[in-house]
Design a protein around this nucleic acid. Structure first.
Lengths: 225, 225
DNA sequence: AGGGGGCCTGAGCCGGCGCTGAGCCAAACG
DNA sequence: CGTTTGGCTCAGCGCCGGCTCAGGCCCCCT
């Protein structure tokens, strides 16, 4: 579990880091607002622990900026303020939880776990053509209920064809997208890999989802053959 | 938005009901634990506000019962207790938030809105893949009834894989989340630790929950192998 | 019918991916 | 101060996936 701590009091930051590392988290620390926002943008964290009063850029602004960019990483806010409206503000701004200093480490841990447990991870849609399905996140392909094992190259070829299902896709396009953009080898690889694909997703099932469009390229049947 | 309030002090219950109705919620009230559990089971609420000290059945038991039935309705806990471990307990038991009496109505509203915005939590407090379970708070892993001892690193690795169960997880992701963010060592450590994990959670049980996705990384079977 | 070009495929080489056992080192422990 | 434990490195090995190539098939054109 990878965390980002944004906290300007270095003693507090260090204490938090030590405690959380001891609990098995991977922890990075930013000592001011701009650094924190930069790190949060560049990397993927499972949660962010963020002070409100920060030099350069307040915690409020950081959350605001992240949410505006559709970044829904869970944020747990720390604050020395104790006005109740501050808390309401933070939660309405999109923070996931709120702790008032001083707080106990045990409570921080429990709330952090609660926040992590909820963790939002919108997975990309599963591609489907008839009973042929491909799940990019799970890297899994199945024909009906039958799981099919594909090599990485076969997988990206099928993924590309499925994303353009129904289109006749030229070999140049395939080379460009599935192989390297400036791939210099023999275009025959495509024929070879189309062959591999057919032997795994079509022939055993008596289907022909992968169709040859002579002179133009290949087409994947939208109904899966 | 339909709410259930489980609260035995009738003055408190009535005050909450009035305030929340005025805010536009539809509110039902149960004045003891068993009634509350019954209503929660029979109906579908967007959230439940639940006291801890209840006659007949404590708030803890209610949450426990609901979660055991895979009912992940958001629960906001109210309590007169103020020991920090109570709070930690409530959150680990599967409560979504926690307020200590006396609390202000404004804060309750803000936290309620935050809880509602998050919606139903996708995951339970204890991570489970089939009969393989991992309790982050207790740092305990078991296969069915058999307790399994893991080193900290092994535990972190398994926790990360379980949080992303079903996904093919790249070695880069694993390095970033389980090892340090800018870990410079050999990525071979992952293979080594995956090996350790398999020897503890899979091989002795004749399972294969930890799957190699050649060229892409690893995947934990959602059904535990 | 014949020829030609596009397409398919089986054989086979090669690089490197993934797994493992051995072993080193530091920290924790008694 | 020795022992144990956990984290990690390293080298070697087996085998898989990527790719090439040559031969043959099939479609289409004339």
């Amino acid at each position: 579990m990878r965390l980002l701590i944004i906290e300007d009091e270095s003693r507090m930051a260090t204490a938090l880091q030590r405690g959380l590392v001891a609990e098995g988290f991977t922890v990075e620390v930013a000592l001011n607002g701009p650094d924190g926002l930069h790190l949060a943008r560049e990397n993927t964290y499972d949660a962010i622990v963020c002070d409100i009063m920060l030099p350069g850029l307040s915690g409020y602004r950081i959350i605001e900026a992240l949410r505006a960019e559709q970044n829904w990483v869970p944020v747990l806010v720390l604050s020395a303020k104790d006005g109740e409206y501050d808390e309401a503000d933070a939660l309405d701004l999109g923070a996931d939880d709120y702790l008032i200093k001083p707080f106990s480490f045990v409570v921080l841990l429990a709330r952090l776990r609660a926040v992590l447990r909820r963790g939002v991870r919108p997975r990309p849609a599963i591609l489907a053509c008839g009973d042929l399905t491909l799940d990019p996140a799970a890297r899994a392909v199945r024909r009906g209920d039958a799981e099919i094992e594909l090599t990485p190259r076969e997988f990206s070829l099928l993924e590309y064809l499925m994303r353009r299902a129904g289109d006749a896709v030229s070999k140049a396009d395939i080379l460009h997208h599935v192989w390297d953009a400036h791939y210099e080898g023999d275009a025959n690889v495509i024929e070879v890999y189309v062959g591999y694909l057919r032997r795994k997703i079509d022939i055993p099932f008596g289907r022909h989802a992968v169709q040859t469009v002579r002179g133009a390229g290949y087409r994947l049947a939208t109904d899966g053959g």
